[in-house]
Design a protein around this nucleic acid. Structure first.
Lengths: 344, 344
DNA sequence: TGCATTTTCGCAATCGTTTGCACAAACCAT
DNA sequence: ATGGTTTGTGCAAACGATTGCGAAAATGCA
């Protein structure tokens, strides 16, 4: 019994009340031109008869959808889902809905997803680009139609849009500084691909911290992950520890990789944090429930989602404002068991 | 330099080509009434001038948005984000976009989210209800407007909608049977709240397996989590193992809880799987990267997202079809180190 | 050649809401 | 009373695409 009852329209109300459609429309938004009396009459009728505007018509008329698009490389990912959570929260608060899609880190998929969103007429786009995205012509299409784009986390500087990013450099620096403060002297880093900005920033922060404290550094102590998997962590840990010059602490690009490292170290009987210090990045749930619990760097993903959404909605409002601001979100060191040598 | 160039409309094309709007419209969809020649002409013009229909207008006219709403209790959750991933994939494949929102397991938020979606005019809704949802009047509003709803995972039988669920009973049964096959005889269960269907189903499967194999059972072996946290797992493990009648295997409602159990057991020096067998549910990434790796039950969340979306889109097509089918997705046992006593 | 089809296209209404403008009624001041 | 302002309302166009219907042009057949 699909109850396909026709929805009430302005025309219906006008007919019933013996007034014109335009008056009804204006009365409902309490336009100053309309008599108080009429406004009350209309509003009451609308209320009791449960009038709800046809948003398809409104959107069409206003050329606005109150929908925002969001594209991430991967949805099933602690950090990104946290960002999305923040974006939804803020979008809803401001009366917007969020359309979500993912690129699987494949450019072709990202283009498809963005086209689908452009078509479905979102008012703006939040995007964390795929590893394969460089030029981003598909994103320019948004700008060409006057629809704002805000990049977050994984960004490209090729596109003239505002950006919301984590201060990766600083986060990495303080993670490594923490290791140093705890007394570790031979610190390795398992990083991500060179062409991904976040991973380069973190690596730079790592190097700077080492340098600032005049610690030994060894090119062989920097390993490059391609897939950011725990298995890579395991394998690189093996490589590092079996080398002629093994480190006594490892800073990993992300918690998952650190967990792989942890697995290797425990398997070989190393004591953590006594023999080897270990710190990750991102503060996934993983890091809190592992044994020992992993020290890590909180990225405030929720806040990133909120900020990016805010920026975007602001731009949707002021169409003509050229906004190229970059918001940098400060990280926060989360110290747990895997690095607290001083208390071990 | 917001490039607010007006988009090309049918009217523009008609004017340029000296034909009427209606002919242009029909030509673009190769209507049989239109001459081949005209069709080619129009299509070529549209192509080279990059015509793209104004979907706001189309949607308004057709009273359809090609958007689907999806609401889950929690977005930052391995299982749910996996389901969403499947839903997005299938929705996009069929030309739909997915609007995502979350209820935080709070009824009030769920109502807000569903209203927002109803307003923004989705064509249908996928929902996994919050723990607080019982009657679901806010979901009836969808049905009343002729918009189909499909429930998945966390469902209520009060609503006349199709459902896609995991065969929790069977999954739990086979998990426990696996423990039994491995030689465990005293099996405890840490379950979820009684008023949540999934957790009751799993508990029922557990009990049935125990009973079918004539194993000892003890009411004190069934513990009830309220928040499904790892800390609860830790605490209940302590309770269980310190009791007068400690079990030698534990089946947990979810991997996270199992991880808490694992933490306790390792802390107290129990060997897993030799001293105590441990199996979780859901196959989160957590379970694969813990030490020892956790046995668990794969729920095929991605498939659930795909199936639910499929069902919904089918119903959007056939508005009048009364579809109350329930799709039950089979689970799959994932055997890892934490239960393989026979090989330990 | 004349009439009946068929082919091809345009007119105009429609979806529901918004909004510029005109206009009538009511008011005020001179 | 006259002219001018204020107040309240309605008319009609507009947004862009779709579609039923009618009509002109082209074709077929006798």
């Amino acid at each position: 019994m699909m109850n396909d009852k026709k929805k009430l329209t302005l025309k219906d109300i006008g007919r019933e009340l013996g007034i014109s459609v335009s008056t009804v429309s204006r009365a409902l938004k309490a336009h100053p031109d309309i008599a108080e009396e009429t406004i009350k009459l209309v509003k009451e009728y609308a209320e009791t008869h449960n009038y709800v505007p046809n948003f398809l018509a409104v959107n069409f008329r206003k050329n606005k959808t109150f929908n925002i698009g969001l594209i991430v490389p991967e949805l099933v990912h602690h950090f990104f889902s946290t960002v999305i959570s923040g974006a939804i929260s803020e979008a809803n608060r401001q009366g917007y809905n969020l359309l979500v899609s993912q690129s699987n880190d494949i450019l072709k998929d990202e283009i498809l997803a963005s086209r689908a969103m452009l078509n479905s007429s979102v008012d703006g786009l939040l995007i964390s680009i795929s590893n394969e995205t460089v030029e981003g012509d598909h994103l320019r299409e948004f700008l060409n139609e006057g629809k704002p784009v805000v990049q977050f986390d994984k960004i490209t500087d090729y596109l003239p849009t505002p950006k919301v990013i984590v201060d990766d450099f600083d986060g990495a620096y303080s993670a490594v500084k923490h290791l140093i403060d705890e007394g570790y002297t031979r610190i390795a880093h398992i990083r991500g691909r060179e062409d991904v900005k976040n991973s380069s920033e973190r690596c730079a922060g790592y190097l700077k911290a080492i340098q600032d404290h005049n610690l030994e550094s060894d090119p062989d102590w920097v390993k490059v992950c391609r897939k950011i998997s725990d298995q890579e962590g395991y394998d690189f840990a093996k490589e590092l520890m079996e080398s002629k010059n093994p480190p006594n602490a490892i800073f990993c690009i992300t918690d998952l990789v650190a967990l792989g490292v942890l697995r290797y170290l425990k398997e070989k009987g190393y004591h953590i944090p006594k023999d080897v210090g270990l710190i990750g990045f991102s503060n996934w749930m993983l890091s809190r429930v592992s044994t020992p619990q992993l020290s890590t760097v909180e990225q405030h993903g929720f806040q990133m989602g909120v900020d990016a959404t805010n920026l975007l909605i602001e731009m949707i409002g002021n169409h003509d404002v050229e906004n190229l601001k970059t918001v940098e979100i400060k990280t926060e060191l989360v110290i747990r068991e895997s690095t607290t040598l001083s208390k071990a």
